[in-house]
Amino acid sequence: MNIYLLAVVFCLLFLGITVELIRRQKMAERYAIIWLLLGVLMLVFSVFPSLLDRVSALLHIYYAPSFLFFIGLTFSMVIILHLTIVVTRLNRQVTRLIQELALLKAQNKEETSDDRPAHRTG
């Protein structure tokens, strides 16, 4: 088995795992798109290795494999950036949820057990 075939098999495996994760609903489609994109891109370069040389030449990259590193790094950065945005949003949502829950529980408690401050009448 040569390295080109290995690369193709690896990419297909990668895509297969991604699709399987979406199928099992372990990964939401909206987050999976970027992974699928990366998988397809890798597959294209694996099936047509000469493409890498041509694109590299076009971009004046003298050592073609470094273009691969560039793609990998770029995708990693974009995915991590995206995740940070998601975490920020989740954090905000969870905080609001906790606040609403606490307010509701406090209201419920005061209504049922008349746990109101003594000096208040209304």
Binding site: T95, Q99, L101, A102, A106, P117, H119
Partner: peptide, 21 residues
Amino acid sequence: TGLAHVIDLPVNVGIGGAVQT
């Protein structure tokens, strides 16, 4: 003390989230 309404946040959310409550 019977002097205040008490709201218990079920987990610690930090000063900003507490004040906002």
